[in-house]
Design a protein around this nucleic acid. Structure first.
Length: 573
DNA sequence: GCCGTTTTCGGCCCGACTGTTTTCAGTCG
């Protein structure tokens, strides 16, 4: 169930967008944008807050609090309705076209009556933009190109696609003689779950050769633009890659700047201004004299702003600045903290590697325990039977000790049926070391039914972990609808862990829900759900999601020593 | 519209690049 917060945040953001089209005060627009983020990230459901409660949300003042109350009582915000009457939704949609912002969108609407992307394409075809002030031939061409791109490609890619491309580019540029440092920054360094464009940062005294080598890389399909400091290209599959080359002495400030997020950078620059400083990608300067203070490392930049270094995964302006000030940044869980993996498959069901191969891959990862959790019989296409499962258990027991230091656990991935039941009876379930239970069907139940279903699964004493809890598939299937706070309460109460599935198209539980669940005292299991040997490498994306949810090692049960984990799996409240 | 260890008023992050300009507005990140 979408929280009132999310819909209210969307309305406030829409208000900001519409005001930017009608030419509203830029600072007012920014205030709305900030408030929208704050509302989305606020732990309490705003549906239950009165005016004073709303007023306590940071960056929400009297005016926005009243608008939020307007929303929670009437379901909408009057000012948004008024602006919608003035500016058709299609005009706002125009600003999604690259190179076309609010000002041009308004001109097109007012001068030509263009109120949708289709109408704009038509108007260009009919030559109606000729002579329009500010719209030359090149602008026309850019808009057509932008519309084309928007139509043919969903604009964001999964994190593994972006990561692999970025690593290839970094390797290629790092090999150049004049390239002193090179890394990726932007949303990829922050480990966002999908990536809109890839940001590469390089340090060199002579930028030209780096830029030229970059545009000559084999996967570059189009050079979008380029100067001495910045070059942008598009890959054959439509992904934009920006390269910034900075002097080596600016490395730290540049890395901080290009990592973002933009909202986080706004905060750090505000802190700088208040301290009589100026922060840019070239360094932290004295505002008066213009004298450079620090720029070589991110740590120095943060330190001079009175902050500890903030991990990129937290840089979202979701409270990390305040936590840093108080010295309360979490010690984030890392891949190295993991002692085990509690969700994996073999070729007994839909995995493509044998039990022995998967176990060897686990040993290679340096794990001290590893659970094999093939699918249970109610996922009928997997043709699981009691006999096959018990025979696998024997094979697992026989493999025990094959890899010194690695303990094997025999488990299963159960199917949560529409009523919250699972595949086997209590006696059979008791034979497993660990049971993951997941939703694999009936994704469209309403929120009340889905909530009951998940709560009942948590209450099953033999269910230890809820696998990929929202069952979303990025770009393909929406998350199931549930009252997540109720589910989190049940998970915490019953000692049921929630999984963070590391598959790049799942990353489920998503980071924002992880953070909400954490507040309820939920424990998590960060797993690969590996179906092949290569899938073991996905663990870093699951860990990235856990980090974006502010998890520490203590919050993640598969960082625990085996004995402590076994006690948790007893599920005795 | 928000906010306060200079402020209840006057500030509010900064720079690169493009295209259409002849000095700058718009867009992007």
């Amino acid at each position: 169930m979408a929280r009132a917060n999310d819909e209210a945040a969307a309305l406030i953001q829409e208000l900001a967008d519409l005001l930017s089209i009608t030419g509203g005060d830029a600072f007012k627009i920014r205030a709305y944008e900030k408030a929208a983020r704050a509302v989305a990230g606020h732990p309490d459901d705003i549906a239950g807050l009165d005016l004073a409660g709303l007023r306590r949300i940071p960056t929400v003042g009297d005016a926005i609090a009243k608008k939020l109350l307007d929303y929670t009582t009437t379901g909408t915000i009057r000012q948004v309705e008024e602006l919608r009457a003035q500016i058709p939704a299609g005009v706002r949609a125009l600003t999604a076209i690259p190179t076309l912002g609010p000002k041009k969108a308004l001109t097109l609407y007012e001068e030509l009556g263009v109120a949708s992307v289709d109408e704009l394409a038509e108007a260009i075809g009919a030559g109606r933009l000729r002579g329009l002030k500010g719209f030359g031939a090149k602008t026309e061409e850019n808009i057509l190109h932008g519309i084309e791109l928007m139509r043919q490609s969903g604009d964001r890619v999964l994190i593994d696609v972006a990561a692999e491309l970025a690593e290839e580019i970094v390797a290629a540029l790092s090999a150049l003689p004049g390239c002193l440092r090179c890394t990726y920054a932007g949303s990829l360094r922050r480990m966002r779950e999908t990536i809109g464009d890839v940001d590469i940062l390089a340090a060199a005294t002579e930028p030209r050769p780096i830029m030229e080598a970059f545009t000559a890389l084999p996967f570059v399909a189009e050079v979008i633009g380029g100067g001495d400091k910045k070059t942008s290209v598009r890959t054959a599959q439509g992904l934009q890659v920006d390269l910034r080359v900075v002097p080596p002495e600016s490395w730290g400030a540049a890395l901080q700047y290009f990592t973002g997020s933009q909202a986080h950078n706004v905060r750090t620059r505000e802190i700088a201004v208040r301290a009589g400083l100026k922060l840019s990608e070239y360094g932290l300067f004295d505002a008066e004299s213009g004298e450079l203070i620090v720029s070589e490392t991110e740590e120095e930049v943060y330190a001079r702003l009175g902050l500890p270094w903030i991990p990129p995964v937290l840089r979202q302006d979701r409270g990390e600045i305040e936590a840093a000030r108080r010295g309360e940044l979490p010690r984030l869980v890392t891949v190295e903290d993991l002692r085990g993996d509690l969700h994996s498959h073999t070729d007994l069901t839909d995995g493509i590697a044998t039990l022995e191969e998967m176990v060897a891959a686990a040993a290679e990862r340096g794990l001290s325990y590893y659970a094999v959790t093939d699918h249970a019989p109610n996922l009928f296409m997997q043709r699981m039977t009691d006999e096959k499962m018990l025979a696998q258990r024997e094979r697992v027991r026989a493999l025990q000790g094959r890899h010194p230091g690695l303990t094997l656990l025999h488990g299963t991935e159960l199917n949560i049926d529409p009523d919250g039941g699972v595949d086997w009876d209590a006696d059979f379930l008791a034979g497993f070391d660990v049971c993951v239970a997941s939703i694999h069907s009936h994704f469209t139940q309403d929120a009340a039914d889905m909530t009951r279903r998940l709560v009942r699964a948590c209450e099953n004493p033999h269910v230890h972990i809820i696998g990929h809890p929202t069952a979303r598939s990025l770009g393909r299937r929406r998350p199931v609808d549930a009252d997540w706070d109720e589910v989190f309460k049940a998970a915490a109460r019953t000692g049921t862990a929630l999984e963070i599935d590391s598959f790049p198209d799942r990353l489920d539980l998503p980071a924002d829900l992880v953070r909400r669940a954490l507040r309820h005292g939920v424990k998590f299991s960060v797993d690969t759900d590996a179906h092949s040997l290569a899938d073991h490498r996905n663990i870093r994306y699951g860990i990235g999601t856990a980090q974006r949810g502010w998890l520490t090692p203590d919050d993640v049960i598969n960082t625990w020593p085996l004995e402590k984990l076994r006690a948790f799996l007893e599920k005795t409240p």
